[in-house]
Structures are given as C-alpha cells and as structure tokens.
Design a protein around this nucleic acid. Structure first.
Lengths: 224, 224
DNA sequence: ATCAGCCGTGAATAGTTGTTCACTTCTTCA
DNA sequence: TGAAGAAGTGAACAACTATTCACGGCTGAT
C-alpha cells in the first residue's frame, strides 16, 4: 500500500466527526430533533451531505450518538452534584435540582432528547440513556430510604415519575412562559424540586430546607 | 335546483364522518399517532382516500378533532369522579386516579394524544386540550388548598407536574412492562397516586388512606 | 514526481405520504 | 325517467428528505 493514515489525518477525521456531532447538537438545541436533518447539519459542519455518511452509517446512528453524548454529560453532572451533598436526602435534592437546571438551560435540546418523536432505531438508544438517568435517581432515592429518611417504596417507578414531573412542568408545552427571567427560573426549580421531594415522602418542612440548600450551589450552573 | 340533502343523507354523512374519526382513533390506539395516515384510516373506514378530504380539510384537522374528542371524554370522566368524592382531598385523589386508569387502559392512544410528536397545526389543538385537563386538576388542588388541607402553592405548575409524573411513569418508555396483569396495574395506579398526593403536600399517612378510597371505585373502570 | 487509495462532493435516486382532481356513481326532484 | 348536482373514487401528483455513488481532488509512501 502506498497510503496510510497519518496521525495528522486521524486527528482531522476525529475533529470532523466532532464537528458533525456538534452541528447536530446545535441544530437540536435550536429547533428540536426535527431540525436535525442531514443537509442542514452538513451545512453547519461545513461539509457536504455525503460526507456525513462517511462518519455515520445513518441518521439514526448520528442521533443515537448525540443522545448518548448529552445523556453522558447529564449523568456526570447529576453524580457530581449528588456526591458533593452531605447526606442521602441532600444528595437526592441535589440530583433533582441538577436535572431541573440542566433541562431548563437547554430546553429545546432537552425536549428533543427526551420526548420528541423519532424512529424506532433511535428510541432504543434513547431508552438506554433515559434508563441510566432514571436509575441514578432511583439509586439516590434508595439510599435515602435505606438511611431511614424516606418510607419504603418502588424506587424505579418513583424515579420515573419524578423525571416525568420535571420534564413536563419545565419543558413541556404547559411550562411557564417567561422562564428566561432568572428569578422566575429559580422559583420554578425550587417549586418543582419541592414537589419531587415531597412526592417520595420527605416531610414538607424538611423538604423546604433541602430545596434551599440544593438550589444555592445550582444557581451557579444557571449563570454558566 | 333538483337536488337537496334529505334527512337520510344528512344522517349518512354524519355517520361516515364519525366512522372516519373512529377509524383514526382505532389507528391511534393501535400504533400511535404515526399510524394515523390518510390511506390506512380510509381503508379502516371503508372509504377512499379522497373521501376523507370531503369531511376534513386536512390531516391536521382530522387529528385535531380526534384529540379534542378524546380529551373531552377524559375531562368529563375526571369531573364525574371528582364531583362524586366527599371532600376536596378525596376529589383530588379521585381525579388523579381517574387519569391514571384512563391512561393505562388506552396506553398507545394516550401516548399519541399526549406526547407523540405531531406538526405545528396539531400542537395548537393538543395544547388547548391539555390545558383544560391540567386546569381541572389545578382547580382541584386549589380547592384542597382553600379547604386548608394543603399548603399554599403554584397550583398550575403542580398540576402540570402531576400529569407529567402520571404520564411518564405509566405510559412512558420506562413504564413497567407487565401492566396487563390487573394486580400490577392496580399497584401502579396506587403507587403513582400516592406519589402525586404527597407531592402536593398531603401527609403520607393521610395520603395512603385517600389512595385506597379513590382506587376502589376506579377499579370498576379498569375492568370496563 | 508519481501513483494507489482514501476523502469529500453534491446531484441524482428512492421511498414515503399528504393532497388534488377528472371522472364515475348515486341521490333527489320535476 | 331524466337532468342537475352532490358524493365517492383512486390514480397521479407534489413535497420532503434520507441515502447513494461516480467522480475529482488530496494525502502519503516510494
């Protein structure tokens, strides 16, 4: 053979691949999953439509990777916030707040990743990602139950319900309008976190305390 | 003119219109909104594709009417159940249980009506329907607050969150698998209702009592 | 410098589905 | 019964997009 991939080429290919993924992410953040179409994404990434297919075997694969990437970031953020909390209940509160803040800061993207319809091939990947995040929340609920802070319950179902509540109330079509106002945004996060904590059995008074503590560090994320 | 619509013809036209709507509903119940395509719906209704357009100006209009119809039924059921309850807290529990049971008994249809992606023209109608149901739940929460049974709160946001929790945990992709088993189904309804009641501030012990009372009459609906 | 082979291209292709319309069939009434 | 006009038909059309592929240009070893 008279041609072999040199390190420089490998790097360029990886960069281009990332650029395409980033373009897809931008498109989704702007117009939801429906806006992730091969031609527009190619334009954003400064490549031709055909080139996209040199990097991803199909659109479904591209979207699957996009979802996986976003979910990986999300999961890491949840773990970081929860692990930094002083106890299981605080950790749960931190996890919930983190989800709320993240979802709000990228509403369209979150909507696309979480709810917007896609074809079957993609929903497999989406399901896996969602399961991971739901599992993480379930684990945090379970820890609080084992610590005696919460009544015994079906933690998997509870985690799913909490995520549903967060998503629907913050990025769903009935979500409040002017969440661009930071104050309103913080209120919404607090309110929803409170609902979530009470739902799994935290006493009202204690829940209010946990919410305040959890929102303080998370406020930084809102600004970022 | 030598032709005028006779009563018999008017009736036949109305029947055909209903048949098309019913066909659309069946299709949605079987395969979600994605399955509501003109050609298949026409076949189900025993008419030609073109005929559908004699009754509905566009597919979006057809789906909008479908959504409105289903939501109207849903809202009526919620009101009926809530009004039959002895007090505001019971009414709220009854309302939540009713939503849960209905959603479970027609999962695919509910998913299509509530969450499946559709084009913009349809989402207007969907939004209106959803707002009505959410408003009804909000009103029930508000009644319980005014009765002093619940702490003051943003009832609209709470109602939206509750519906999100119900939908996600019962018909979302992470919903438990074998809900066809009546016992499992009842458990799921109870668990989710309990979560919902606690979320808005009902004390755990009292919530458990309300759940049991609310599920008893609703069980009949499951069988139907 | 040169050539083998990979990378990038974008116009053409193909599949899917909502919508139209020229035509047929049915209904009503004189 | 026949004419006027409405209702029904379904093949053809149109719009949208994912995907392909034959070609031109670039890269890297000799």
């Amino acid at each position: 053979m008279v041609y072999r991939r040199t390190h420089q080429v490998v790097k360029r290919l990886a960069a281009r691949r990332s650029a395409i993924l980033a373009a897809a992410r931008d498109a989704a953040a702007e117009g939801g999953m429906a806006a992730v179409q091969i031609a527009p994404v190619a334009v954003r990434a400064n490549v031709a439509a055909g080139t996209v297919y040199r990097y991803f075997p199909s659109k479904a694969e591209l979207i699957s990777e996009l979802i996986a990437e976003v979910s990986r970031d999300e999961l890491a953020a949840i773990r970081r916030a929860a692990d930094a909390a002083p106890g299981p209940s605080s950790a749960l509160a931190a996890a919930v707040t983190t989800v709320a803040v993240h979802v709000l800061s990228q509403r369209k993207l979150a909507w696309g990743i979480l709810a917007e319809p896609v074809d079957v091939d993609v929903s497999v990947s989406r399901l896996a990602s969602r399961r991971e995040i739901s599992g993480e929340i379930a684990a945090r609920i379970d820890a609080a139950v084992r610590a005696g802070h919460l009544p015994a319950q079906d933690t998997a179902l509870a985690a799913t319900a909490l995520l549903g509540a967060l998503h629907e109330s913050l990025v769903g079509p009935l979500a409040p309008e002017n969440l661009d106002d930071p104050a309103k945004l913080r209120d919404a996060v607090q309110t929803v976190t409170l609902l979530a904590l009470r739902a799994v059995g935290v006493m009202d008074a204690r829940a209010r305390g946990l919410v305040v503590q959890a929102v303080l560090p998370a406020k930084a994320l809102v600004g970022a």
